[in-house]
């Protein structure tokens, strides 16, 4: 057994898991977005799961670090929080904050993270959204709103887990990156019983077409956009 000390708490862990997975299992919260249990390798794209490890010159992404014996970890140092806050601000800078009309309202990962890190959902510094591309996914069942998408790659990963290969993919790049599906023929898409991508999406960027209208009607009473 490997002994790790996280925030002064001694925990014992087995091998083969990342530090982030271990901490989450032990109930120690580290902000994260792109990490998915069971993924062969974490994409480490959200840049939120930073921790300070004794002996390391700078904070490291905990989803990429395997625990070692005698490791001393702090999850809440000032420089860790600063990195996490800037990462979240960058994510929110390309996210269309319209909580009132979003099906994810009140169960949204971004809302939770913003509350946890004390970052306002809407930044006054940003006058306009760089990411305005309109709906793009041409799929018989699903709809995709790029302005909501945080590009966490979870939908692509679960699609790959369910079908051996991924029907979903990132297309284009930079601000124009979208999740898309190339196969347009409904008969050749195994999506009719599989809702994995819709269920995994943390921000309702990808959702069922016919549920789109209902989801908006089911909304709880108006909720202020920023805390």
């Amino acid at each position: 057994m490997i002994k790790v000390n996280v925030d002064g708490r001694a925990i014992e862990v087995g091998e083969g898991q990342s530090l982030l997975a271990v901490c989450l299992q032990q109930g120690i919260f580290i902000p994260h977005l792109c990490f998915l249990e069971g993924m062969p390798e974490s994409p480490a794209s959200c840049r939120l799961c930073f921790v300070d490890i004794q002996g390391e010159p700078a904070p490291v992404a905990s989803c990429k670090v395997p625990p070692w014996d005698g490791m001393v970890v702090r999850t809440d140092t000032e420089r860790v929080r600063r990195l996490q806050k800037s990462a979240l601000r960058l994510l929110l800078s390309v996210h269309h904050v319209d909580c009132r009309n979003c099906p994810s309202n009140k169960k949204c990962v971004l809302q939770d993270l913003a509350k946890f890190l004390g970052v306002p959902l809407k930044s006054k510094k940003l006058e306009h959204l760089q990411r305005e591309i309109g709906v793009e996914l041409d799929h018989p069942l699903f709809q995709f709103v790029p302005e909501r998408c945080v590009l966490c790659e979870k939908c692509i990963a679960v699609c790959r887990q369910h079908n051996d290969f991924s029907l979903l993919t990132f297309a284009k790049r930079g601000f124009n990156t979208v999740v898309t599906c190339f196969e347009k023929d409904p008969d050749r898409l195994p999506c009719s019983d599989c809702r994995a991508c819709v269920e995994i999406c943390p921000v309702s960027a990808i959702f069922l077409k016919n549920e789109a209208a209902e989801a908006c009607l089911d909304q709880p009473p108006p909720f202020p956009d920023s805390p």
Partner: peptide, 13 residues
């Protein structure tokens, strides 16, 4: 032997 989505993703990049 890869998905057509993957080809499209690479090409659009």
């Amino acid at each position: 032997g890869i998905s057509s989505s993957e080809v499209y993703g690479v090409a659009t990049f």
